[in-house]
């Protein structure tokens, strides 16, 4: 089984990389991009039977820094 973890900066935490991407899109003529947030995706190959609770623990302990980041887990 696989889990896909999406890690994003929390709302309210300024994302300078997202802002830079937004500016670049504007410079390319893409009007109407009002905000860009950049995050990361981490794919985990897991042994059968690994629970979502274990993946949550992985996120809390290592994969996300919950001071500034939020995460969502997708089991696929």
């Amino acid at each position: 089984m696989k889990a896909r973890v999406h890690v994003m900066l929390k709302n309210g935490v300024l994302d300078p990389q997202g802002e830079a991407v937004r500016h670049a899109l504007g410079a390319l003529g893409f009007d109407g991009v009002e905000g860009v947030r950049q995050g990361k995706v981490i794919e985990l190959d897991l042994a059968a039977g690994t629970t979502e609770a274990t993946v949550t623990e992985m996120c809390e302990k290592l994969l996300a820094n919950t001071v500034i980041e939020s995460y969502t887990i997708e089991l696929v």
Partner: peptide, 17 residues
């Protein structure tokens, strides 16, 4: 030290990247 939780807060990418 912030990642261990021994100090509060976090260090983000510099604002000017």
């Amino acid at each position: 030290l912030t990642e261990t939780g021994l100090l509060p807060g976090a260090l983000r990418r510099n604002a000017n990247l």
